[in-house]
Design a protein around this nucleic acid. Structure first.
Lengths: 346, 346
DNA sequence: CTCGGTCTGGAAAGCGCTTTCCCATCGATC
DNA sequence: GATCGATGGGAAAGCGCTTTCCAGACCGAG
């Protein structure tokens, strides 16, 4: 015979209090925790009533009464992209371990969406917001995002970015440039001298950093990538595929191709395969996406600890804000595999 | 000179009302929508004030006042698994198109977590909850989930499941069995007669259905899979890899192996490659994971429209509840590729 | 003019909680 | 035996909104 406050259809704390024969205040203290203690016998009575009525506290009401929530917003570009889903997995794991809920939004690479979603999170009074996404060099969009994040922090929320250090907030900085530089050094060390780069979108900072780092790494061995061997395109599989074909059409004779991420590298491999060149032209990627570790030939790449990056970002927002934005640097590690067997010197 | 209700640090509707020189009620009607109209001139004044103060409505407070939220909970097993991240992408897209926020949780295949999260969603008074995850045959866990979902629906929320029709709620039913049956028929048609199956975990319904369907399909051509050629293991890449090695150790002579999902199939391919058998033993998977479309040899599989499945589930919860649970059947389509070139009859 | 009706703004009553007061009780203290 | 400090229960005041309900203004009809 469960008495429900028929109006809304959900069991409220008042129902529980009535059932247990105590006041609202006592019920609240017994069930949802408080500094104040409650006599064990009464606590037990309340808990039993709650169980009998299958009560669950209205988190919204708690949030509005307490002035804070246990929600953290995570913004990624595309959850289908394994790069982001790994980061999300790390963030979610860390969130769960700390009793937080994660709300995820995908921006589909539209910077405005980031701002929009950050505003929504401010509306939800989220405890924190984590934004994983390559910044573009669109100064306007960046300013708007900065303003919104500022408002978010002023209203008591915590913010962390994943990617590059572009705004004065806590950031997990991914050493794209250094990783790509290392890769360039190693590939030059394998004897390659003629390179192409599938460089991704021009305005994507991550892509630009990787390109820059790579050419630096090669420069250490006096290898230069001629401008016409740098092909821009989309940041995804098809972008890699098409850019590879473009490159082949332009200058057929490169020994090694660097795609600025693994997904593009796989597209490039497919393109090479369609031309029968998969064992002729070496290919390297970036990220070391788990799902792609079994492609053939196994992909040389720069391993990024994506799950840890997600965890690290969440750790940052769990900490009290520092007076100055924190930076946490994450480096990648070059992994040489079959896709770059090295030049037999001739 | 922005006056803020200093206490909480966030701009409230009251601040806006004061700034605009109107009542709280009017401000609410002007900004956050209402059946009632507001004189355009006043509305404009309120909107300007809101903009000046950079006001964002407290969604929690709105939720508690209105008695509903625009939050939908999505439960997946592992967001890193491309199967689930594609479903999530579809669900998120559809949610965004309808002004809903998505909160995602990963269960890591622990059925209890599903219940726990559903309860949390009830606490958040989420508008809906979508659960994507292979049910296990654990009757107890299923009952608990059923009870919780029931409570959730009674409190006014909507529920949809993705997978198999196991509970009396709206469900996007994935035709695992039929898809696997079709695959069996086609593979038998290619001339294979001796099969192995990498069958995944024993208690996972999805895996069991696919196994059952596959053997049915083969049976149509009077091919039987001997029990010792069915190897159980984990549902992931390593599970496929290890199961393949086990199978090879047990009975080396199978012509074709069916792994109950693509990720396992890739693991199996890796295992075969390590034995130099990648062109000797045919391999088929299930799902047609996007990221895996470029593995070599290209994988024969059953294509599942994962993104659409996610969208469909969200569509279901957007509709008014029907008197009887809805079912929406999604079939897979066999895609034959190089990994099953067919037997040259000898 | 007066009367019902339509607009539109404001006061106030919620929504379901938490938390501050207030007060009764009780054992310990002098 | 009066006093004091804990202890723990309840009433009520919020939290930031939405949504009644009420009242004044304005309109055309009679």
């Amino acid at each position: 015979m469960r008495t429900m406050s028929a109006k809304r259809g959900a069991v409220t704390l008042e129902d529980v209090a009535r059932e247990a024969g105590v006041s609202l205040a006592t019920a609240s203290r017994a069930i949802n925790g408080s500094a104040r203690t409650v006599r064990p016998e009464i606590r037990e009575r309340v808990e039993r009533a709650a169980r009998a009525l299958n009560y669950t506290a209205n988190a919204q009401a708690q949030a509005v009464a307490r002035g804070r929530t246990n929600l953290v917003g995570l913004v990624v570009q595309d959850i289908e992209d394994p790069y982001f889903s790994s980061i999300a997995a790390g963030a979610m794991r860390m969130a769960e371990a700390n009793g937080l809920m994660v709300s995820i939004a995908g921006t589909g690479r539209r910077p405005d969406k980031e701002v929009e979603y950050a505003a929504a999170m401010r509306g939800l009074r989220a405890a924190a917001i984590v934004i994983a996404g390559s910044r573009t060099d669109d100064r306007d969009a960046l300013d708007r995002l900065g303003a919104e994040l500022d408002a978010f922090e002023r209203s008591g929320g915590r913010v962390a970015l994943i990617g590059q250090r572009r705004l004065p907030v806590d950031t997990v900085v991914v050493a794209n440039r250094a990783g790509a530089r290392d890769l360039g050094v190693r590939l030059a060390g394998l004897g390659y001298r003629s390179f192409g780069v599938l460089a991704g979108p021009r305005d994507l900072l991550t892509a630009a950093d990787r390109l820059a780092g790579f050419t630096e790494g090669l420069a250490a061995s006096d290898v230069v990538v001629p401008p016409e061997a740098v092909v821009h395109g989309e940041f995804d599989r098809d972008g890699g595929h098409d850019a590879m074909l473009d490159l082949l059409a332009g200058r057929g004779e490169v020994e090694c191709v660097f795609a600025v991420n693994d997904v593009m590298a796989v597209g490039a491999l497919a393109a090479l395969r369609s031309r029968g060149l998969e064992r002729t032209v070496a290919v390297a990627g970036f990220d070391d996406i788990t799902t792609l570790r079994d492609v053939t030939p196994a992909l040389t790449t720069v391993r990024l600890p994506l799950v840890e990056i997600g965890e690290a970002a969440l750790e940052m927002v769990l900490q009290e804000p520092a007076d100055r934005p924190r930076r946490r640097l994450v480096r990648g590690e070059v992994v040489l595999r079959e896709s770059t067997p090295g030049m037999r010197h001739g």
